[in-house]
């Protein structure tokens, strides 16, 4: 097992998807190995073996470009109760700064 996967009903699987784990039949026999790229005929065969759900590797979403303006605007909204000038409320301010660094993928000194 490596990386995120999703248990996907057979009906929703498509050729080209990748198995995140071995698939076994009811008796424990291995039908397909981990990492196999599914084909049309494999899917049909799995159906005949009574397999109804498959562990599919989650496609790593193509990283959408980060829009710093939108990120900050949303954080301003979510943190609308926080008053930057209220020194007693520093913990909320630090949380906001960390989340902003996280969302903007800034390098952080250890």
């Amino acid at each position: 097992m490596s990386g995120p996967f999703q248990l996907t009903p057979l009906a929703e699987t498509r050729p080209g998807m990748v198995l995140s784990d071995v698939v076994r039949d009811g008796k424990g026999n291995v039908l397909l190995a981990q990492g196999v790229v599914l084909t049309e005929s494999m899917l049909a065969s799995l159906g005949r073996h009574g397999i109804d759900v498959l562990p599919i590797v989650q496609a790593v979403p193509a990283a959408a470009p980060i829009d710093p303006v939108a990120v900050r605007a949303r954080l301003d909204h979510v943190f609308r109760k926080h008053d930057r000038d209220d020194l007693g409320d520093w913990a909320t301010g630090i949380l906001r700064r960390y989340v902003e660094d996280y969302r903007l993928e800034r390098e952080v000194a250890a």
Partner: peptide, 11 residues
């Protein structure tokens, strides 16, 4: 969505 005030003691 709204972030509540974070307790500095807890932080």
């Amino acid at each position: 969505e709204l972030v509540p005030r974070v307790s500095s003691v807890a932080w």
